[in-house]
Design a protein around this nucleic acid. Sequence first.
DNA 1: CTGAAAGCGCTTACAG
DNA 2: CTGAAAGCGCTTACAG
Lengths: 342, 342
Amino acid sequence: MVTIKDIARLAGVSPSTVSRVVSSHPRISPDTSRKVKKIMAELGYHPNVMAKSLVSKKTQTLAILLPRPAEELFQNIFFSELLRGILASANRLGYDTLLTAAGERDELESVARLVRGRRVDGIMLLSSRTNDPVIDYLASSGFPFVLIGSCKEHPDILSVDNDNTQAAFDAAQHLIAQGHERIGFVSGPAYLTVSIDRLEGYRKAIASSGLPVRSEWIIGGELLKENGYRDLSLMMGLPERPTALVVIDDLVAFGVLRGLTELGYKVPDDISLVSFNNMALSELATPPISTIDIGSYELGYTASQALIGAARRQPASTVRSVIPHRLIVRESSLPAAVITKT
Amino acid sequence: MVTIKDIARLAGVSPSTVSRVVSSHPRISPDTSRKVKKIMAELGYHPNVMAKSLVSKKTQTLAILLPRPAEELFQNIFFSELLRGILASANRLGYDTLLTAAGERDELESVARLVRGRRVDGIMLLSSRTNDPVIDYLASSGFPFVLIGSCKEHPDILSVDNDNTQAAFDAAQHLIAQGHERIGFVSGPAYLTVSIDRLEGYRKAIASSGLPVRSEWIIGGELLKENGYRDLSLMMGLPERPTALVVIDDLVAFGVLRGLTELGYKVPDDISLVSFNNMALSELATPPISTIDIGSYELGYTASQALIGAARRQPASTVRSVIPHRLIVRESSLPAAVITKT
DNA sequence: CTGAAAGCGCTTACAG
DNA sequence: CTGAAAGCGCTTACAG
């Protein structure tokens, strides 16, 4: 392996000088610089990343901490878009990205290894659950980290999120505007902040229009599992069943769509649907699914940027960034008559 | 930050001894070990990863090189499963995983940085295109790497793949067994090895049954783009149109399904569909899509394992691993009558 | 079983 | 503008 010493010897300068050329130190003569660079190119020199990190105490690396049941987020294309945004921003700012699965039992231990072992310069958390010990640990450690999402217990940590309450409000409002009066909600895991926020927005919208919020119209979204359609089936069998549903995300919406089809209901004729995330496939569903685009790419991009700022100890301009959302209306929430007009 | 010296001082031993305790050196007295470990636990000591790497010349890190147009693979949940497998195996063997996007222009340069800068111990390539300069570079460098897929130009490199030709053969055979005689193929990008292999398997199956292979029945799969349905529409408008299609993957199959629906065709009544990858959503499509499960998780797991073996300079038992596939028959390739019986 | 010493490949005050 | 020297935090022959 060619080192800085080899270059120095061949160029007839000291290692210090080579180092300065590499880092484009201002006070180096153009001549020397040119000569050294030539040799470096000839030998295909690349600085040893570890040696550099050891002395600079910077790794130029970010860790992405995957949520515990990795499958969960993983199956969701939302995650891919997010990742694209994270990588784009990190790449642009010269950072590498480490993908770390929070090992089941020793989640805290694996985070401690990253932090105390100086493995990375900052950590990104991809989901926010209530009472997350990892957040507690990081918040008290002073180590740079950013949360994609938000955390009631730590309102002051660096985070990037949507206004999920408003987004769900908008989704429900859209259904109300279509004339629906009985609107249900299909939720995600109750411990995820995003579930809580969206449920709240749904409630607000319904209540503020003077419509009823019925607990029988709010069901869980474990639709990919065994017996997944039971709750859906029960709800649809109610004497007064909902005529429209707000669904926690597109992935669950696919399950709902499938379940409704199997139960013999047609979307949107019998029941309307709006969900969240605008994953690519939601447009290709039968019928295409109305959804709130939450700007996944931008969430990732912004979070990455914010984290790098924190890692560089730059003062953060905003501790809590909010990424805008927008409703995309498709066939699943429009009566056929309206479609043909559009 | 607490270092090995701090521990040594507090434990009244030398730094060498602490180092030996950390790496569970055999010739260290139980007493010393216990004493040192106690102090380490008290101070929350974690070895500096960079310092360790510098001297050991091992980073315990693998790089995953994302294919150039990251969107491509990214949108595909196939990728998520693959990633899960990679992470599971790497994690189990004590390796971290770096996610690196091959920057457009300087793809080779970014790989060279990883290799020559000793950033990682091995590199994993997620897709195989024809004439890939990255593969040429890595093959000639002697640096450990593994390809998920295969590469005609370099048959001897470490790789993990499906038997895609056989898989496509099986898919087509299944349609032939249903009585179809006019079977088309919807392909992916022509420069991807997987497209080439699957097309070949399709051709073989059709030809070996004495059925016609018509070039008008083979179309590209750019169905998510503008005018994406044009080719599909043209093909379906032929005097003799196919009654069944083999589709390059589930994502494209979703597009085909949508296109066919918009053109007024019903699946499987008017035309049958079989695709590849068995992504979670393929089961939730309307109708559920028949697909070849290619064992994405296992592909990733095996590749990661093989790469780590190579990084450790262990002799590889198999240079080319083949992950088995299996056909999953769903409604998209079964006449309704058969469904009700099942 | 343990320690002193050299060294991994870099950076960076300190001199000049 | 450039060099000699010390040091980042660890490992590992070499002695004992």
